[in-house]
């Protein structure tokens, strides 16, 4: 039996990397991931039941509703329905902003931690992950408490005389952004840290030896070499930010609505529209897949 370990082909009893090792994970992925997703795909092409649920009758109404406005009774000439498109665009912008913000804060953090002595590194990583021992919901609610009009943040600013009236954060896009950034920062820090830790510091010395300034070392050597970690961090922040619903629900309002909340609403209680929620999910999923495929292609080109 031949297999490959660490890129080398080995053939012996000690390379028994057989397919059945993956069986449990295939079973879990199949039952709990692929099956529900297929169900959603099917639902998105069915007719809605008014109390929630579906009628098993093929219909493109969900996708049509997403893009076109046909009036209250569906009999007017179709015009573009901007409501949902706006929500999607807002979600993409928010997710991109969160990714950029996490990168700007996360990269220096990871760089700092990775360049500490080995013992101190473990402590820093521990400190970074501590907040994540608390449920995301609790943390988001706490943040709302901190930034509300009469919360500690505004009290402090008023007390210092920096502002005359409370600075309204809750229900704004800024608050949602803050929530996303805070929720997903470690997903940026940890993969970049992992790449940084493997980075061979003598590459920086070699670059300095070859007349590169500190900035040139960062731009031409460090960043390209740890790029896989940066890309992984960006994907890990962008994808969940795009579908997030906790931060926009709790910190935002009607004007900060994001895709996640839109989908959530369709399946909640009796007022929902399951086929429409399923269709929005499928559109979201396709967008994420496009991003991942573009990334995969750019990687393939480089090799």
């Amino acid at each position: 039996m031949a297999g490959t370990i660490g890129g080398r082909t080995v053939s012996s009893t000690y390379a028994p990397v057989r397919g059945w090792l993956l069986l449990p994970s295939w079973a879990v992925i199949g039952v709990f991931l692929l099956l529900p997703m297929l169900l959603m795909l099917v639902y998105s092409f069915l007719t809605k039941e008014f109390r929630g649920g579906v009628i098993w009758e093929f219909s493109l109404a969900a996708y049509d509703q997403f893009i076109f406005d046909r009036g209250l009774f569906g009999d007017e000439a179709p015009s573009i329905e901007w409501t949902y498109i706006t929500i999607f665009v807002r979600s993409i912008v928010q997710a991109l902003l969160a990714t950029v913000l996490c990168l700007l804060i996360g990269f220096p953090t990871a760089y700092y931690v990775a360049t500490r002595p080995a013992r101190t590194r473990a402590l820093w990583l521990f400190l970074i992950t501590i907040p994540y021992w608390v449920n995301l919901l609790i943390r988001t609610v706490s943040m709302k408490f901190l930034i509300r009009d009469n919360g500690p943040f505004n009290e402090a600013l008023l007390g210092l005389g920096l502002i005359d009236a409370p600075f309204q954060l809750v229900n704004t896009n800024l608050a949602v952004q803050l929530g996303l950034f805070y929720s997903y920062l470690p997903f940026m820090v940890l993969p970049i840290y992992a790449s940084m830790e493997r980075y061979n510091a003598s590459l920086s010395e070699a670059a300095a030896d070859l007349y590169a300034t500190r900035w040139q070392i960062l731009r031409r050597v460090i960043i390209p070499v740890i790029k896989p970690g940066i890309v992984a961090g960006c994907i890990l922040v962008f994808v969940p930010s795009l579908g997030a619903f906790l931060a926009p629900d709790l910190l935002g309002g009607a004007k900060t609505f994001m895709i996640g909340s839109l989908i959530e609403e369709q399946f909640k209680g009796n007022a929902g529209n399951w086929p429409f929620g399923a269709a929005a999910s499928m559109i979201l999923l396709s967008m994420v897949l496009v991003v991942l495929m573009l990334y995969a292609r750019s990687q393939a080109k480089e090799l």
Partner: peptide, 30 residues
């Protein structure tokens, strides 16, 4: 980076993301 001295490192410290030509050209570009 201000000394006209260059080093051949023990583990070579070649830039893994660059071709042979780009590695050799690095100092000249800088």
């Amino acid at each position: 980076d201000k000394r006209p001295i260059n080093t051949v490192f023990q583990n070579y410290a070649l830039f893994p993301h660059m071709s042979v030509a780009d590695n050799i050209a690095f100092g000249l570009k800088m």
